[in-house]
Amino acid sequence: MNREINTEIASGVVGLILSAVFFFALEDISWMSILFPKTLVYIMALIALALVVRGIIKPSRDRIFHVGSNVRWMVTGVLFFAWVLFMPVLGFFVSTVVFMTIIVGYLARARSRVTIGKFMVWIPIVIAEVTFFYLIFTKVLYVPLPEGMFF
């Protein structure tokens, strides 16, 4: 795969968009609270602009997203988000066991065929691992982990 773009223009544009987002979030509050963030937003916009200008004057291209399978990291990312968003519903323990198993199965697929037999091995390992961390956090460190409908 060969994706090449001008990363200076790209990062400049990203910077301008972010500057705009924060610029419109600036509120009319006392100078002590707002002076510094306001200055920073302007500075970031200036740097972003400089990047765009330089990218136009001296164009250069870099490869992006060239490592491995892009589908795979995106699916992994979606699974991460789902995992966390389900935590308050299912509880930390259940949500983690479910999504860890899914991610293990999904990533293992890249290397070899996934069979039911393999899951029979993986699931107990996942449960043991999660139990270990769950007990350390709740019983030793007294961290009240998200509870769902079960516990």
């Binding site: 990062s11 972010l18 006392s30 609270s33 707002i34 963030p37 920073l40 970031m44 990047l51």
Partner: peptide, 26 residues
């Protein structure tokens, strides 16, 4: 230059929430 932009972004992210001085939220 990209690093500087990252630095500026980091500082802006750092200003989110209650102002250390001034007490209002941003």
């Amino acid at each position: 230059t990209k690093g500087m932009m990252g630095g500026a972004l980091g500082m802006i992210i750092g200003t989110m929430g209650v102002a250390p001085i001034g007490g209002e939220t941003r």
